[in-house]
Amino acid sequence: MRPILAFTLFGAAIPALAQAQAPDAARAPVQALSDGLIGIMQGGQKMGFAGRSAAIAPIIDRSFDLAMMTRVAVGPAWTGLSAADQAALVAAFRKMTIAEYAGNFDSFGGQKFTIDPNVEVRGADRLVRTSLVQPGEAPVAIAYRLRSGANGWRIVDVFYRNAISQLATRRADFSRVMANGGARALIGHLNDLAAKAAA
């Protein structure tokens, strides 16, 4: 038996493995986001904060599952909230996310993102590793966790330096305000953060 045939038979016998060998779908949102960030960095001051926000917003909407991220960050209290508060929280979380990207990625100094072609499987989720390469500085590892839903693969968490989960951090960050002031207080804080990122 030639190796190529053995490989084909083996692959056909294990559908899960075959599925894991088609990673492009989970990589696409990460690629889109990375390209978008380079784009607004290059736009820089000329684009202005408003211009960068407008450019990155549709990319964020297509790359992230912001509704799910909001639910996880808010935690178990989510199920007790009114539909209006839930919608307002998602909107505030979205606004903050866009403002932070537009605020932080505001100038270009030759940076690039390299995306690991190997997509890792994490239960039902996928992990895509990237590296922010900056001239004269050590590369920064940024990994994305993606989950498949009605709209295909979407980013649900971002890991900084392979160690720090953005969602776990947000959840810790939100918990006290949620417990004390509820959804309205948290919405107020998120809007403040968005305003601060714009400043």
Binding site: A67, R71, T79, A83, A150, N151, A168
Partner: peptide
């Protein structure tokens, strides 16, 4: 940490894209 409270059947799914 990624337990999704909205994934419970009781909760409405705010999937307005």
């Amino acid at each position: 940490e990624l337990d999704d409270p909205g994934a419970q059947p009781a909760a409405p799914e705010p999937e307005k894209k």
